[in-house]
């Protein structure tokens, strides 16, 4: 083979390889990730304020997920509907007032230390209207935690013998629930994961599988920009 022909063949192979790699990378970067929810922002004395209303449910139900029996977090959209989105777009340097309605029973913390609220204003939360600086770790149902913010809030569960327990989500506030409120602040822009620290995935080994390992249920991101 002549030198020129050889060179041409090698050059074409390199270009073809480069194009394939380009396609692969482009595909990766444009892949549809978990759908996000943009939380409406208000202003208070020139600073962004966000009201985040979320609920935790023992079973997400067939309406909201192909895995109806999975435990999940839900967020309330502007129309008041509960949707299954755990990637939330938030403004940077904002004050975030969180209200969590927990409809699930207690399953206990693996690490009792996480029963102390941290990374929230005053290191305290309000549980059913009363301030608290800690709960009995055995009463924990889930946690809302953003490790990068040092934020940990353990959510107490509904009593096992409570009447009117919610079966499948979305759960009406008329059904048995606990209300947990706290305030935290977003800092610099970034992509921060949040998660539950209670192994709460019923039916999986030690409660670790399924919804604990899947974004959209017990895990998500704060997309701060």
């Amino acid at each position: 083979m002549r030198f020129g022909v050889k060179l041409l063949l090698i050059a074409s192979a390199v270009v073809a390889g480069g194009v394939l790699i380009g396609f692969y990378v482009a595909n990766l970067t444009t892949l549809q990730g978990s759908a996000s929810y943009t939380i409406p922002v208000q202003q208070a004395s020139g600073k962004p304020v966000v009201n985040l209303k979320i609920e935790t449910v023992a079973a997400v139900g067939p309406q909201l997920s192909p895995n109806p029996d999975w435990v999940s977090y839900l967020i309330q959209n502007q129309k008041g509907a509960w949707i299954r989105r755990t990637v939330w777009k938030l403004p940077a340097n904002a004050t975030v007032h969180v209200t969590v309605y927990n409809f699930d029973g207690a399953s206990g913390l693996r690490n009792p230390y996480l029963a102390r609220p941290q990374g929230v204003d005053g290191n305290q939360v309000t549980i059913d209207g009363k301030p608290a600086t800690g709960i009995d770790p055995n009463d924990a149902s889930h946690t809302f935690a953003v490790p990068a913010y040092h934020l940990i809030v353990a959510l107490p569960g509904v009593a096992d013998n409570a009447k009117n327990q919610c079966g499948y989500a979305p759960c009406s506030l008329k059904l048995a629930h606990r209300t947990i409120q706290f305030t935290f602040h977003t800092g610099a822009p970034g992509h921060y994961r949040w998660q539950c620290f209670v192994p709460c995935a019923a039916g999986w080994i030690d409660g670790f599988g399924g919804p604990m390992q899947t974004i959209g249920y017990m895990d998500g991101f704060l997309d701060v920009s």
């Binding site: 029973g105 207690a106 399953s107 206990g108 693996r110 690490n111 009792p112 230390y113 029963a115 800690g134 009995d136 770790p137 055995n138 192994p199 709460c200 995935a201 019923a202 999986w204 080994i205 030690d206 409660g207 670790f208």
Partner: peptide, 19 residues
């Protein structure tokens, strides 16, 4: 008062729902 006594390792109670 809720913290377990310091120990070289811990065996968290079997979860009520998990497993």
């Amino acid at each position: 008062r809720y913290m377990p006594k310091y120990s070289r390792s811990y065996y968290p109670d079997p979860q009520r729902r998990g497993g």
